[in-house]
Amino acid sequence: MALYDLLFGPFIEFGFMRRALMGCIALSISGAPIGVFLVLRRMSLMGDVMAHAILPGAAIGFLLSGFSLFAMTVGGVAAGLLVALGAGAIARTTPLREDASFAAFYLVSLGLGVMIVSIKGSNIDLLHVLFGNVLALDDPSIYLIGGIATVTLLSLALIYRLLVAECFDPGFLKSVGGAGGMAHFLFLALVVLNLVGGFNALGTLMVVGLIVLPAASARFWSESVPGQIVAAAIIGIVSSLVGLLVSYHAELPTSPAIILAAGAIHAASILAGRHGSFASQALRARHLRA
């Protein structure tokens, strides 16, 4: 009975807990393939950069119309795409490497975003933007996250083969006339969409965590791309559930609790995952006959 109350009580009793859970589950499922491809393309840090890049756009939306979901979403998507394209273009046309170019954008974006929010709002507003407010998700926010998850999964199903080929052997894809550049851009657009979708719930600083951490952990549990996507989704959902319960029972801030839960699973994966973890390496110390 006690266990039942501990695990299910909060969700049965409170609508805001159910909403938070639904939002996080949709984000986890949608973010899983995004995160896996970010990790495989060695773009995990870039995901972080893009999340910050959203900030000034969302902040301008906030400046113009307060906490309006529509304004902040449109602003965030616009700013995210602008930075993704701008940083890519600068890396291609100047000697500045892509990571340095992204770092520059990210620092400026963070500064600009915090400045803009502070002009109009209070420190509470700033905290909301940076760390989200998953326990206050309203219906439109849930619909937005659900819609983005649907668009993400459908689009990825369409460009999956292109993305895999582009990661593994871009020269081959180009030689058979495949639209690798288009796939890359579409993927970046999906990254931005997911970050914007999650930003309401987890805030710009934390949202990447629910996308990249499960994907980085999934690498230790499966050796195939589809396997990693499924593993990442499961890890994301479990992290959300654990994070929400811990934050509820211990009265701790929610989005850090979710990210820390994902972090704990990540640590466990490094230690004891099936492929390449410390444990699996120790067990495989004795070599096979052939």
């Binding site: 495989l40 895999v164 990661c167 593994f168 052997d169 871009p170 020269g171 081959f172 030689s175 058979v176 006339g177 499966s222 050796e223 195939s224 791309v225 990693q228």
Partner: peptide
């Protein structure tokens, strides 16, 4: 046609750590 060429890139141009069978 240009997109019908069989092209073998240098191995270093490929990501061999990519989880493919």
């Amino acid at each position: 046609r240009r997109d019908d060429i069989g092209y073998l890139p240098q191995q270093s141009a490929l990501d061999r750590s990519f989880p493919m069978r």
